[in-house]
Every structure is written in structure tokens, then in C-alpha cells.
């Protein structure tokens, strides 16, 4: 069960994307700055998107564009879905950052724990 091959074949889309995802989770848990939290969520999103794009991809696949060879084409469905996910990711970051700006203007800090203290001390 544990004989994982440590070699170049380990560096594929899936392991890298999982690594990116959990780096994002790490940032989420450790960072106290709200901007860094937003960045961490972005990193997690990127990891998940990379994972979906590399699902079912074999070496030598061509992009599913135009009249390329039907049999060597990469799976088009995840790619179509991930365009949506990327767009959602952009809008989500934009909304989060906008909300962060108004939060910062009201509370004057970008630190989660300081905001809590300021709310409680009222």
C-alpha cells in the first residue's frame, strides 16, 4: 500500500494540483491577514481547477480545438467546465476584495483577530 514510487513520474498534474490545493489550505489556517486569506482561497481554487484539467489526460494529447485528430484529443468536458470555474474565481476574488475594502474602511485593520477585539470592546 505504501510503495509510492518516488521519481519523475510523481510530478504529474494531480500530485502538483493537490499540493497547490493544500498549500492554499495551509495559508487559510495560518494567515491572519484578510488579503492573504483571499489569496489562499484563490490558490485553493487554482489547485482544484488544475486537478480537473489534468483528469484523464494522457501524454501527447492535443487540445480539443478545431478539426484536430479525434482520437488524440484531450477530454473536452473538464476544459469547458473549468473556463466557467475560472470566471467564477475571478468574480469571487473581485467581490471579496471589494468587500474587504469597505471592511477595512470601517474597522481600520486587516487582521481577523484585531477586528474581533474591536467589535467586542465596543
Amino acid at each position: 500500500m505504501f510503495d509510492v514510487p518516488f521519481g519523475p513520474e510523481l510530478i504529474n498534474g494531480q500530485t502538483v494540483s493537490l499540493l497547490i490545493f493544500f498549500i492554499g489550505v495551509f495559508g487559510l489556517v495560518t494567515q491572519r491577514n484578510i488579503v492573504k486569506t483571499i489569496i489562499s482561497i484563490n490558490v485553493m481554487d487554482v489547485g482544484a481547477i488544475l486537478f480537473l484539467i489534468t483528469v484523464n489526460v494522457r501524454a501527447g494529447d492535443v487540445p480539443p480545438v478545431g478539426e484536430s485528430d479525434f482520437l488524440r484529443m484531450a477530454d473536452p468536458l473538464p476544459q469547458a467546465l473549468m473556463i466557467t470555474a475560472i470566471v467564477i474565481g475571478i468574480s469571487v476574488s473581485a467581490v471579496s476584495l471589494t468587500i474587504f475594502i469597505s471592511l477595512f474602511r470601517k474597522h481600520g485593520t486587516s487582521d481577523w483577530s484585531k477586528i474581533i477585539k474591536r467589535i467586542e470592546s465596543r
Binding site: Q14, F21, A48, I49, F51, L52, V55, N56, L77, P78
Partner: peptide, 9 residues
């Protein structure tokens, strides 16, 4: 989303 990826895989 990552779960959806695993489901698809």
C-alpha cells in the same frame, strides 16, 4: 470543486 474533480476522475 476539488471533490467534483475527484468524482470526474
Amino acid at each position: 470543486l476539488l471533490g467534483v474533480g475527484f468524482v470526474y476522475r
